[in-house]
Structures are given as structure tokens and as C-alpha cells.
Design a protein around this nucleic acid. Structure first.
Lengths: 229, 229
DNA sequence: GTCTATAGTCGGATAGAC
DNA sequence: GTCTATCCGACTATAGAC
């Protein structure tokens, strides 16, 4: 009996890695659905199909596990945003860039962000952790916050300011960028999704959100252009 | 000794009311700063300057206290929004209302909402509880959610749709209203406030947020009007 | 109406066998 | 690398004195 142990000396390190991954995956779901405090170690262990001591063993502590969860999500966001973020940086580096040369990467950045945050690769549970990150005060959340500022807020602000021919360090430039990103952010809330009668997002619904935001951004840029004349 | 008891038979009920109010006020601060789970009854009692059993005595349980906190905040929001919400309802009831007859209450509604959420009457701690309400799943939060939908989302959606001459029940009308309110919502996050280098909001900063949102709403309405021609 | 004392439960982390 | 068993501290709520 217990044949699987016949070759256990070979894959033991690998089995450890797999256990670690299983705990991490279950922890993402659990922290998202019940929150940090209510995600007791016993519950986390049960959902992962491991015994309780596996958590301190692999992650040091409950907060160590949460930190790992946050880093995994931030890495996924950064990976999905990378092409759009690099295109934005490239356009900004071009000091003589035309309006259209700047507008295209801005729209791509916003579209990709919506697609990343609402799309199937980014399950509802992840959105909840991001939402919590915005209000909770755990040190573990810094990684996620930095990721958001670097990949979204800063490029959006700079592209908008450059298109409008304004100083990108003006307070007004920051306010405008934050307001525009607020339009996307609010759709990450499950309350809003449900309020629309949507159980979850799909390609069509994501497209509708993208269309709405694009329409608003185009309008904002158009009216400011008019005001300049 | 203990002279204060000399006339205790007269004001005992009143003293009870005052104790209740003190617990409620301290609970608002505490739930906001550390969250529901981490706001232990011992901490709540200590912050209120009362002994622990006073909480189950006056509010039944910890969640009863939280429910009372939520209801107090929802009542305050409803009170501050009442004049603007009524003006919006009145304009919507006027089936032949002109564009300007609808635009003014819309702007007043948004301005008042910004003023309510970011102003001094609504301290940072309250904003945090509202933010938590959007993601947490406690039954106690329904009162606050209903208040927000009734006083803000629904009138904003209807006014925008009427101004644009569109069906207010269209999905697009909802998406537009939610996106616009998302611009305000994002400024409620302490992370955003701090990110702007602002320790807290003041009259000047609230004015800057109002100006940004107004500018965007005007642009959105203007460009849609153009598209209709 | 408010207190002290305590009951009863459950939290995270660890020691040590296998 | 994973398990069983257990520790110790902290939690909410209540009982009963004053």
C-alpha cells in the first residue's frame, strides 16, 4: 500500500512547491471573499486542503501569506499592463509627439486597464483584494499601491497633460487623471456590477464600459481643445 | 462623598442617553480607523471611556453597535443631500423641462455630493466606513447602500438621460451616471487624498475637485449634443 | 444604570512524532 | 515535508453585585 511513496525521494521538493502554490491559490480566494481579519488560518488551511501548520511553515505567518497574495496579484497586473505601459512611456519620451501620437497610447492604456481589471483573467476575488488594498492599512499592500501609481496614474496624468499642452505637474493635471481613472475604478466594485444586474463581466459588458469611458475622455479632450481657441 | 449621586434620581435616564451617544461617537472613529473585525469590544469601550458591558447593554451586540453607526452616517448623508435631491426630483417631475432647467439641479446635486463627502461635516473616518460599505458584505450596510442609490445614482442617471434626450433606462444611461459618480467616489479614498499631498480636504481643495468634475460633465454633455446634430 | 468577575469560545503559533 | 496535539492569549457575552 501507499505506492505513491515508492518514488517520493525524487519529487519531494517539487511536492513542496505544489503545496505552497495550492495554499497561495486558496488564500487569494479566501482573503477576497471574507477579508483579512475573517480569513482565519484554520479556514485558509481547510480551503487549501492542507493542515494548519503548513501556513507558518511555508509563509512564516498569516500576514506573510497575505503579502505573498498581494505580490502575486501585483505581478499579474504589471504583466498584463506591460505592453500598454511601455507604449505610453515611449510616446512620452518623444518630446515632439503629436496629439494623435499621444492619444492612441492613452486610449490603449485605459482600454487595457479596463480589460485587465474587469476581464476573465482577473477574477472577482482579485478585484475585491484590490478594493480592500485601497482602504486597509497593512504594510503588505504597498507593493500593490506602487504598482498602480507607476503603471496607471502617472502615465495617464502625463499623457493627458501633454495632449492638452499643460504642465503635467499642475494640481489640475493630477485631479483630471484621478477623476478619469475613478470612472474605471468604480466598475471594480461588486456592488456596482450587481447594481447593473450583471452577475459578472463578460466581453460585451467590458466593451460597454470601455465605450463609455472612451466617449468621456474624448469629450473632455475635445472641449478643452475648443476652450484653447 | 459621591455628591453627584445626590440628585441622581432626576437625570439618570438622561445620563444613559449621553453614555449611549458617547459610545456611538467613539465607535464611528474606531470602526473607521481599524475596520469592523479589528474593532474589538474592549477597544470600543476604552475609546468611549466606558466599561465593556455597556456595549451589549446599549446596543445588544457588537454588530448592533455597528448597525447604529451606519444608520447615523446614512441619516447625516441623507440630511445634507435632501435639498439638492428634492430639487432634482422636482425638475424630473416637470416633463417639459428645458435643458437648463435640468442642468442646474444636476450640477447642484454633484456639487453637494462632493461637498458632503469631502467637507468638514463628513470627517475622514466616515468616508472610510462608506468605502468599507462598498466592499464588505454585512447586512448592516444595506441602509447606507439604499441611501446612496436613492439620493445619488438614480437622480444623476435620470437627469443626464433627460438632458441628452435618451431613454433613462438604457444600459448606457446607467453606465454614464456610474462613471461620472466614480470620478467623485475616488476622491473619498484616503490613499488618493494623501497621494495628492493633501493631509485632508479644505474649502479650496473641495472647490478644485468640484471644478474638475463640473468641467468633465459639461464636456460630456456638450460633445453628446454635438453628436446629435 | 453601571460595575467586577468570569464563563465559554476561538484565534495564531509551536513542539515533536512520523 | 507533513501531521497530531497542544499552548497561550484574546475575544464576546453574561451573571450578579452595587
Amino acid at each position: 500500500m501507499n505506492l505513491s511513496f515508492g518514488s517520493s525521494h525524487r519529487g519531494s521538493a517539487q511536492r513542496g512547491e505544489e503545496t505552497r502554490a495550492r495554499i497561495l491559490a486558496a488564500a487569494i480566494e479566501t482573503f477576497a471573499s471574507v477579508g483579512y481579519e475573517a480569513a482565519h488560518t484554520r479556514l485558509l488551511a481547510e480551503r487549501a486542503g492542507v493542515k494548519l501548520p503548513a501556513i507558518p511553515y511555508y509563509f512564516g505567518s498569516k500576514e506573510g501569506l497575505f503579502r505573498a497574495v498581494i505580490e502575486a496579484i501585483a505581478a499579474k497586473v504589471a504583466e498584463r499592463m506591460a505592453p500598454a505601459a511601455e507604449a505610453a512611456q515611449a510616446a512620452l519620451a518623444d518630446t515632439g509627439a503629436s496629439r494623435d501620437r499621444l492619444l492612441a497610447p492613452l486610449m490603449a492604456l485605459l482600454d487595457t486597464f479596463i480589460e485587465t481589471m474587469l476581464g476573465g483573467d482577473f477574477p472577482t476575488s482579485w478585484r475585491l483584494i484590490v478594493s480592500r488594498a485601497e482602504i486597509e492599512n497593512l504594510d503588505s499592500l504597498d507593493a500593490l499601491r506602487d504598482c498602480m501609481v507607476r503603471t496607471m496614474i502617472d502615465p495617464t496624468k502625463s499623457l493627458l497633460a501633454r495632449i492638452l499642452g499643460q504642465d503635467e505637474n499642475d494640481e489640475h493635471s493630477w485631479l483630471r487623471a484621478i477623476a478619469i481613472l475613478g470612472q474605471i475604478n468604480i466598475f471594480c466594485k461588486p456592488l456596482v456590477c450587481r447594481g447593473l444586474g450583471w452577475s459578472d463581466y463578460n466581453a460585451e459588458r467590458i466593451g460597454a464600459v470601455q465605450a463609455t469611458v472612451r466617449e468621456h475622455v474624448v469629450a473632455i479632450l475635445a472641449s478643452s481643445k475648443e476652450a484653447q481657441r
